[in-house]
Amino acid sequence: MKFSRLAGSVIGGWLLLSVVTGCGSSDSKTESTAETTTSSAKPTATKPADSAPKKTILFYGNSLTAGYGVEPSQAFPALIGKKIDSLGLGYSIVNAGLSGETTAGGKSRIGWVLRKPVDVFVLELGGNDGLRGLPLSATRQNLQAIIDTVRAKSPQAQIVLAGMQIPPNMGTTYANEFRELYKQLADKNKLVLIPFLLEGVGGVQKLNQPDGIHPTVAGHRIVANTVWQVLQPIL
């Protein structure tokens, strides 16, 4: 597999996991619960609500989640939303992907993003750390802090961790330890793990934009299918 050169501060590439731009809206809308009608000849009757409030799936990541280089509706979180709508599942999608985001940046803003509780939290961060060769101990600590904050603010939320991989530019030892970091965090925190977010896309020239890092529209469709295979059983 050939890997293209690193692209400066651009986030994700065929890294691992994304934060506040993109598609979707964050809040579920609650409809009226019931209407009560009375009649002199009949007892009080209750009309059920037309629909229940939707639960929220929040995608938290970097440019991969944000959909850098494609339309917001073509990024994998939006494609997941379309799958959910087609099946009539009661979930809304919030895309909290931010291009260029590192785990440190994600840690600093997670409290603001989680001003309201969520039901499923998909964590896709770390790729930019790896491309920059940042200390893995810091990446691990930052991801753990994000996980802890989600658990504190949305105790009921199911957390999905998107695994990432990087080319061996920083050395094979660093690349291998970076890859294993995600599995170790998932095991420690009992998270649902997507082994490699860019499976079948990373390193494939025709599925990536000219920078060799960010998926094309076709690449995002493959990423959406990879994520859906893990996410669907949870929903």
Rank of each mutant, 00 (worst) to 15 (best):
V204K: 14
L131R: 02
A104K: 03
T36D: 00
E199N: 15
G88M: 13
A34R: 05
A145M: 02
G106M: 05
A104P: 00
I110T: 00
M164R: 03
L131Q: 12
F59D: 06
G22N: 08
F121I: 10
N62R: 00
L125C: 13
A218I: 02
R109N: 01
Q156R: 13
I194F: 10
D27P: 01
S18G: 15
S9C: 02
Y91R: 09
Y91H: 10
G171R: 08
K29E: 13
S28V: 12
H214P: 01
I80V: 14
L16N: 15
K116E: 14
V120S: 06
G200A: 03
A186L: 04
Q156D: 09
E101D: 15
A138P: 02
A7N: 07
S154F: 04
I234E: 10
A104W: 03
V201E: 11
K82Q: 14
I146C: 15
P168F: 00
D85W: 02
L198E: 03
L98Q: 14
G133Y: 10
L6G: 02
Y68N: 03
I166K: 04
G24E: 08
V150Y: 02
D129P: 06
P168D: 13
K54L: 11
L16V: 11
T149W: 00
I84P: 10
I93T: 06
L131C: 08
Q144M: 02
K107M: 13
K188S: 12
T216I: 01
G163I: 04
I213G: 03
H214K: 01
G163R: 08
L89C: 03
G81C: 12
L64G: 15
K29A: 08
L143K: 09
P72N: 12
A152Q: 14
S9M: 07
L131E: 10
T38P: 00
A78N: 06
L185E: 09
T149L: 05
K116W: 01
D211Q: 06
I213N: 00
T56A: 10
Q184Y: 03
S92F: 02
A7L: 02
Q229G: 11
V150D: 04
S4K: 09
L15Q: 06
P43W: 06
I80M: 08
D129E: 05
I166T: 15
G200P: 10
W112H: 13
G130P: 13
T30E: 07
Q184T: 15
